[in-house]
């Protein structure tokens, strides 16, 4: 039973971490390798909020705003010139990630930072104690997922974004300001990533390079989901389960590469990943 909870919460964390990357990849067709850096920025927002003596939960909106603002600058100055060179965009965003990592190191030092817990303690569930925070991430994933679905399905930006995903040329021909859609999408993607960074703080140590480890997993999940929001949910569940099961029954080291290897194989067999199902 605990295994099921582990799988569900792992999937929830993966979903929260990947959704920002998915939004950017879906609309901009760009793989944002600075995604790890946005996670790190979010986590350091939690550090800053704690230093300022704010309520730990205040870090969430703070991270979303900071991430969104920095994301806007990034789109304008780094991403925009590279739309025609998607492989170069991977490299430029990776370089940006290095720069952000070093700036954070200069500002905060390279040591591990401590942040206050958002939800502490354990909950008794099915006769065993389970981390209350891991359960809370499940709720967070559902909230973010629903909010995301509502944005995509119910707002003008969401409609424009879907049009751009399907046929960018046609969308531009219909008078949709695709440049603005891209800008807002990138800001939202960066904001969501920073939000995820805050949510990660109770689970991992906070240091300037914390994001890199999460980047590859998120990247592989997004590749398999191929810009489909529901497919991302499925991919998180399936690969999250694989990761938990392999870690538990085989070896934690193999568990850590389960997502990458399985996703690569899925893509080899079906280049569109899970999005066709």
């Amino acid at each position: 039973m605990l295994l099921v909870l582990d799988i569900l919460t792992t999937a929830a964390i993966l979903f929260v971490v990947s959704i920002g990357l998915l939004a950017v990849f879906g609309v901009l067709k760009i793989i944002n390798f600075a995604h790890g850096a946005w996670l790190t920025i979010g986590a350091y927002c939690a550090v800053v909020a704690a230093k300022l003596g704010l309520n730990p939960w205040a870090a969430l909106p703070l991270a979303f705003v900071v991430g969104g603002a920095l994301g806007g600058l990034t789109e304008l100055f780094i991403i925009r010139p590279l739309y025609r060179r998607p492989l170069d965009a991977i490299l430029a965003t990776w370089g940006l990630g290095i720069v952000i990592g070093q700036l954070i190191t200069l500002g905060f030092g390279r040591d591990v930072q401590m942040t206050p817990n958002l939800v502490s303690g354990t909950v008794e569930i099915f006769g065993a104690d389970y981390s209350a925070y891991r359960l809370a991430t499940l709720g967070a994933a559902i909230v973010i997922g629903v909010a995301f679905a509502l944005t995509i399905g119910g707002t003008r930006l969401g409609l424009s974004a879907r049009a751009v995903i399907m046929n960018e040329t046609l969308a531009r021909g219909l008078g949709i300001d695709t440049a603005r859609v891209r800008l807002f999408t990138f800001m939202m993607g960066a904001g969501l990533a920073a939000l995820a960074g805050v949510l990660l703080t109770p689970l991992t140590s906070v240091d300037p390079n914390m994001g890199v480890g999460w980047l590859i997993g998120a990247f592989m999940l997004v590749m398999v989901a191929d810009a489909s929001f529901l497919a991302l949910g499925v991919a998180c569940l399936v690969f999250g389960a694989a990761q938990v099961l392999v870690s538990t029954f085989v070896s934690p080291i193999l568990g850590s590469i389960a997502i990458a290897v399985l996703a690569a194989l899925v893509l080899r067999v079906s280049p569109k990943g899970f999005s066709r199902a």
Binding site: I78, P81, D88, L91, A92, G95, L96, I98, V99
Partner: peptide, 10 residues
Amino acid sequence: LGTAFVAVII
């Protein structure tokens, strides 16, 4: 190095 890299790519 990171800054130079981003600048060169763009």
